[in-house]
């Protein structure tokens, strides 16, 4: 006992150091659920105001650029409207009759503005200015006009934290547009414009320049949202799968306006999911 006390007195500084260091690591490992919520709670009071002001000022510098791209996006969307399509069918009535009643809205989009963003860390999280009061929930997908952005990981009343594609923990189900082969896509971990797909079998014809889009298998994103372009295909002799390097179409360095995707049929799908999981057990 005496030796123990002497030991503690002798090494009390090292003990304090190890204790506090252990506490920091506890905070770090607990953070995946906790840290952004804490951040967001303080952000309501202080960060929200500070970063909004900061963003209000800096966004003026990009006003022309974002207006231009919003106009371009409007034009592209207008071209997709049914009115803009020419139908070769003589009998247009049957076409509208057969299609229109069957279409049900599945995805709705909430516009939001990025108030804080990072691209150079090992785990990048961005913050948007809409939260639970505006209808944002945990685990909604986030897209922008050029491609996918990430997934909502935490919400407070008026702000949300979004795990961007540039995050070690982010995975999305993606497919090659021309032949529908799918696999998980994740960040390559180095720069803000490249990602990897590792589960494409070797026999699949994929070449540089192919388009990668979302598969629509998860409730995060609708089908066929642009993700990127194949940049490089590597295959090793002893492995059954290829490494596909993808150049992301989203430019994470100048994100401003994004859309949060809400899947209206999510609860239905997850209910079915839990039933099948139970049945398999």
């Amino acid at each position: 006992m005496y030796n123990l006390v002497r030991f503690l007195i002798r090494y009390h500084l090292l003990m304090l150091f190890l204790l506090l260091e252990a506490f920091s690591f506890y905070l770090i490992f607990k953070k995946s659920k906790f840290h952004s919520a804490t951040f967001l709670n303080t952000s309501n009071a202080l960060n929200g105001a500070v970063f909004n002001t900061y963003n209000d000022i800096t966004s003026y510098f990009y006003l022309r650029k974002s207006n231009d791209s919003l106009v371009a996006e409007n034009a592209a969307l207008r071209a997709m409207l049914l009115q803009s399509k020419y139908s070769g069918d003589v009998d247009t009535f049957s076409q509208t009759d057969s299609i229109a009643p069957k279409l049900i809205q599945r995805f709705v989009y909430f516009p939001a503005k990025v108030i804080r963003n990072s691209t150079d860390n090992a785990n990048n999280i961005l913050y948007i200015d809409k939260g639970s009061l505006q209808g944002i929930h945990h685990q909604m997908g986030v897209i922008c006009r050029n491609g996918i952005v990430g997934q909502v990981v935490d919400v407070s009343d008026n702000y949300s934290a979004v795990m961007s594609v540039l995050n070690k923990d982010f995975k999305v189900s993606a497919k090659i547009k021309k032949n529908n082969y799918f696999g998980n896509l994740h960040w390559s971990g180095v720069n803000a414009s490249s990602a990897k797909m590792d589960e494409i079998p070797k026999h699949v014809p994929v070449v540089k320049g192919d388009t990668i889009v979302s598969s629509g298998y998860s409730s995060l994103f609708p089908e066929n949202v642009m993700i990127g372009i194949v940049e490089n295909v590597k295959s090793e002799v002893d492995k059954p799968f290829m490494h596909v390097d993808v150049k992301l179409s989203t430019n994470f360095r100048n994100l401003d306006f994004v859309y949060v995707v809400k899947d209206l049929q999510r609860s239905e799908i997850s209910k079915l999911d839990s039933v099948t999981i139970k049945a398999n057990k």
Partner: peptide
């Protein structure tokens, strides 16, 4: 001991604003 406490807590305060809870605290300490 006071130096270590200051290092730790200054890191925690910065972490709260940076959204990186624990990282700056551990490094500052």
């Amino acid at each position: 001991w006071m130096l270590m406490l200051i290092g730790f807590f200054s890191g925690v305060i910065a972490d709260i604003f940076l959204g990186t809870l624990g990282f700056n605290a551990a490094a500052g300490l």
